[in-house]
Every structure is written in structure tokens, then in C-alpha cells.
Design a protein around this nucleic acid. Structure first.
Length: 502
RNA sequence: GUCCCCAUCGACUAGGGGUUAGGUCACAGCCCUUUCAAGGCUGUAGCAGGGGUUCAAAUCCCCUUGGGGACGCCA
């Protein structure tokens, strides 16, 4: 049996870190087993679904390198039963936006009604809401009270004639239990008296989540449902639906992944900072690093390995190594990991990937081919310190533009009585140099220190701040070499002028 | 309120009857060093609590506590 798994996001916002993790695990499972990874857009929320969100999901998945074998090929306007281009079997169920699949749900609903397993409910949303509030005030479980459960055909016809719209409710069993096995959580058992007759189709004719999910997973021949454990308590409802529809023999295996929590232990949300993969992309994270980090949230190998190539992840990922407990998202470790990937990267590639960020920072524009060799040299100097791609412009700006002096550095290093004289002397020493290599400038600076009877650092530091405006930066002499004799001396002159100015 | 899930250093986790409870991030110290990093070495730090079962419990069972989730014409 070939494995078929799916990622089924609702397009109501950005691709969330939690969603990305779920997608990744499904994708890894599919790739590990040679199975099929399906993308299904659950756009049945008629008010919140947007095309922009669909696009964001596509972009996020693609950026992470999670390609889908079946699913939509383009972000399309939602709300309609027209069929959009998709990749996958060209059959009645080969459509991957739920709003394209309305006739399929209708058919399943009709079957349940005909068999007396579902019924139209004429209660309004307000009435149901009141029911719930009343139950809650009595400290009872908020449930639908079954008002329309046993209406006669005549009563139903009458209400319909009155023009009352109806939802379709599933006639849930009043007693007994539902049991199923979860590949991560183990054997599950839920009492049916916890359930009420939940709505499976809204009055608009659009199915609700639990119903659409079951119909689609069955139609798409999904073999394993790997999803967040916030869906664990939905599962008994879905199991009941599989049975009612006569599909229990083909029911998928469930595996519920633990949640991802924010640093304060509550569910990861906006107030914890960046929660969408797009934000991480913009902040200069590498997809391979985010992917690697996400893989470790709720999964591990026996030896607690933490750095994996993509292929290694595919090769080693198994559902039985998924952990039951929730994981806290740790931005610090992600950042460390990103730096780890950046350090391992070739300078050439790092430069290539940094280009968009250099552009955004206004440090480069137009065609950069001519300056690429210089860019690479400069980036090579700072590579080991770079954690995020957005660090690149911050660290190499001194080579590409005049950088203002850091006030603290000026106070600490430059505002000393003998500094102007020292800098004057350094200009003379540099001017005398034929080669402005790192070795040559280093030798010159050391000789200067000896001449003045001061420590090397007393020369190096002022020169550094003079040339770069900061106390931190690349190796001083390599920085001078790349900056070049002309610019270096020019900047030192400016510093002397700056110091005498006040 | 009811139901469900979960519980090893601050964080991610390994270990699932006998271990000096291991690794990684973070943190601290030392080394390296013109700065900042990186790197190397070392260190601080953990089995939520209480009962059982057992010769032996982090590991199995129960309870408590704590955290999370679900109870929508949201998904």
C-alpha cells in the first residue's frame, strides 16, 4: 500500500510556524516512504478565506522546499464550484480546493439523510447560541439540545415552507464509546455522551470542517492523517462519520503531533513575535535552517542529532520517533542553527543569497556582476560572524559606503590626547607602503607602536575606529587591505579633521 | 463546567526497571585573539509531588499538582 498524506491548511492568514511543522512532517513521512504528499486547501470558511492566504501558503511551502505531488497549481479566487488547474488524477475527486468539491459533500450528506443518520435543523444560530449559554450558566457542557433531531417529515416540510433555512446535523450516538488508535498518542477512547449533534453542513450548503475533512480524506484515499493534537478531540467525531458513511474499513491511521508553544508556555501566537514563515524569510533565516529546526520540534533521533541535511532528514524521519509532549519554540536555538548553516555555506552561495538583503539595505543596486568578486571577499571576512542574512548588510556596509562614527567608540577610543598625532603618523606610515597588503599594514602598525613606545592595541584600536567608525569589525589589516590604501588614508584624514572640529 | 492530551537541566531532547541520567541551545569560566565572533576545553543546571509494585523505579500503576487542547452554521 502506498502512503498518501496531506497537508490541509485553511487559507485565513499566513503560513504559521505550527502549520509549517505539520506540513514538514507530512512531507518527510511521504518522502521517507516513497508516498504521495497532497496539498488540500480547506477554504470552507466563507468569510475568512482569501486568495492572498492561499498564495502565502504556496510561497511558504515552496520556500521551505516542500513540494506537493497532488494539489492546486495556482492560487485562485475562492468561492465557487468551478474547477481550477491542479496536479493530480483528473477524476471527480482530483480537485484540491474544498469549495470546488461542494457536489461531493452534498452527495455524502444526502446519503446520510436518506439513511436517517443526519437531519435538517431549523434552529437559528442565535437560538443555538442561547442554548449553549444556558447550559454554561447551569455549569453544564454546552451542547445542542436536539430540538430538531426527531422532527416528523411533516414538521420538516412545514418549516421549509415557512422559508426557514436549515443546517444539517449529524445524529450522533447518545451513549457508548468511540475507540481508535493513534500512532503517536496510543489507544484513545472517548465517551459519546460528550458529543452533540454537530453541524456537518451549514445552511449555505458548505460543509463544516469535520465533515469535509472526512469526505476528502476518504475520497483522496489518504492513508495517514498527521496533524496537530488540537484535532485529537475532533477525531472521535470523524471516526463516527467514517462509520456512518460506511467507510470505516478504509479509515486512515491517525497520528497527532504535539503542539508548538511560545516561550511562556501558551500556544504560539503573534504576541510571541514572528509566527509566520514569511517573517522568518524576511528576517534573513535560511529555509534549510528553519526546516531543520522545525524537524526537531517533536521529533528526534536516538542519538539526539541536531544538524541534518535535507536528505538525511528524509532518510531518518519516522513517525514512531515523534514525541507526545508539546515543544517550546526557541528562537535562540533557531538563530544558532541558522548561523551554523551560514558558516558551512560557500562564500559564493552566501553572497548570492545575501544579494536581495543588500539591495533592500540600499547598499547595492542595478547589475552587481562586476562587483561580485569584491563582495565575496568582503563577505568572506565576516562570514563566521553572520547569523542571519540581514546581518550581511550590517557587517559589510563599511566597505560600500561611509559609515558614521559610533559615539561610544569615539568616546572610548578616539577622544584621547595623543590620538590625532598617532593617526597623522599612521597616515605617513601607510603612505610609505608600496603594497597595502594585510601583512604590510600590520607590520607598519606594529613598527609605529614600537616607535611611540605603546602597545600594539593602542595603535590598532584607534585605526580601527577611524577607518570603520566602530570598535567591532573584521580583522583590522584584512579590512584595510580590502578597503584599499586610498580610502583607508582618506578616512583617517577625515577622522583627524573630525577630532579637531570640536 | 465536561472531556481529552502531556510532564527528564531555563529550552529542545536521549534514556523506558540496575546509567557517574547523555547530547544540543542558552548561561558561566578558561584558552585562542588587534576588536567582535567562531573554535577548543571546563563548568552550573534536570527525572513536578505523593503513594504503591519490585531485591531494585527517571523508567510500570494510581492519585495530586501543573501545563496544553477541545466543546462554533471556525478550521
Amino acid at each position: 500500500m502506498t502512503i498518501r498524506v496531506r497537508f490541509a491548511p485553511s487559507p485565513t492568514g499566513h503560513l504559521h510556524i505550527g502549520g509549517a511543522r505539520t506540513a514538514l512532517f507530512n512531507w518527510l513521512f511521504a518522502r521517507h516512504t516513497g508516498g504521495t504528499f497532497i496539498l488540500r486547501i480547506e477554504d470552507t470558511d466563507e468569510v475568512r478565506s482569501t486568495v492572498e492566504s492561499v498564495q502565502a501558503i504556496f510561497d511558504g511551502l515552496r520556500w521551505l522546499g516542500l513540494d506537493w505531488d497532488e494539489g492546486p497549481v495556482a492560487a485562485m479566487k475562492i468561492a465557487g464550484t468551478e474547477h481550477y488547474p491542479s496536479k493530480g488524477p483528473a477524476t471527480g475527486f482530483g480537485f484540491y480546493y474544498q469549495m470546488e468539491r461542494l457536489p461531493l459533500y452534498k452527495k455524502a450528506v444526502d446519503q446520510l439523510i436518506a439513511e436517517g443518520k443526519a437531519y435538517p435543523c431549523f434552529c437559528t444560530a442565535e437560538e443555538v447560541q442561547k442554548m449553549r449559554e444556558k447550559a454554561e450558566s447551569l455549569k453544564r457542557q454546552p451542547k445542542y439540545d436536539g430540538t430538531c433531531r426527531d422532527l416528523t417529515p411533516e414538521q420538516r416540510a412545514q418549516k421549509t415552507k415557512e422559508g426557514r433555512s436549515a443546517t444539517i446535523r449529524f445524529k450522533a450516538p447518545l451513549s457508548g464509546t468511540v475507540q481508535f488508535h493513534d500512532d503517536i498518542k496510543g489507544d484513545m477512547k472517548f465517551d459519546n455522551d460528550q458529543l452533540d449533534d454537530f453541524v456537518i453542513m451549514k445552511s449555505s450548503g458548505v460543509p463544516t470542517y469535520n465533515f469535509a475533512c472526512v469526505v476528502d480524506d476518504h475520497d483522496m484515499q489518504i492513508t495517514h492523517v498527521l496533524r496537530g493534537d488540537d484535532h485529537l478531540s475532533n477525531t472521535p467525531k470523524q471516526v463516527l462519520l467514517y462509520r456512518a458513511l460506511g467507510w470505516d474499513k478504509e479509515m486512515p491511521t491517525f497520528a497527532h503531533l504535539s503542539m508548538i508553544l511560545g516561550p511562556d508556555g501558551s500556544r504560539l501566537s503573534k504576541r510571541h513575535g514572528a509566527t509566520s514563515v514569511q517573517e522568518y524569510q524576511q528576517k534573513g533565516y535560511l529555509p534549510e535552517a528553519l526546516r531543520n529546526y522545525l524537524a526537531l520540534l517533536g521529533w528526534s533521533t536516538e542519538d539526539s542529532q541536531d544538524l541534518f541535511s535535507f536528505d538525511e532528514l528524509i532518510q531518518k524521519f519516522t513517525v514512531d520517533r515523534c514525541v507526545k509532549s508539546a515543544a517550546t519554540f526557541d528562537p535562540q536555538k533557531l538563530e544558532w542553527m541558522n548561523g551554523e548553516y551560514i558558516r558551512k555555506m560557500s562564500v559564493r552561495e552566501l553572497t548570492e543569497r545575501a544579494l536581495p538583503f543588500l539591495r533592500d539595505a540600499g547598499l547595492i543596486q542595478g547589475d552587481v556582476e562586476a562587483m561580485r568578486p569584491e563582495l565575496e571577499k568582503v563577505i568572506a571576512l565576516e562570514q563566521e560572524k553572520i547569523k542571519l542574512l540581514t546581518d550581511v548588510p550590517k557587517r559589510i556596509d563599511i566597505f560600500l559606503k561611509e559609515v558614521p562614527y559610533d559615539p561610544e567608540a569615539v568616546e572610548k577610543v578616539l577622544r584621547k590626547p595623543d590620538v590625532p598625532a598617532l593617526l597623522e603618523e599612521s597616515i605617513k606610515a601607510f603612505e610609505a607602503l608600496d603594497s597595502f597588503s594585510a601583512a604590510a599594514t600590520e607590520e607598519a602598525c606594529k613598527a609605529l607602536a614600537v616607535r611611540r613606545g605603546i602597545k600594539n592595541g593602542a595603535v590598532f584600536h584607534p585605526v580601527r575606529v577611524s577607518v570603520s567608525g566602530r570598535t567591532q569589525g573584521p580583522s583590522l589589516f584584512h579590512m584595510l587591505e580590502l578597503l584599499g590604501k586610498g580610502k583607508s588614508i582618506d578616512r583617517i584624514r577625515k577622522t583627524i579633521a573630525f577630532l579637531s572640529a570640536r
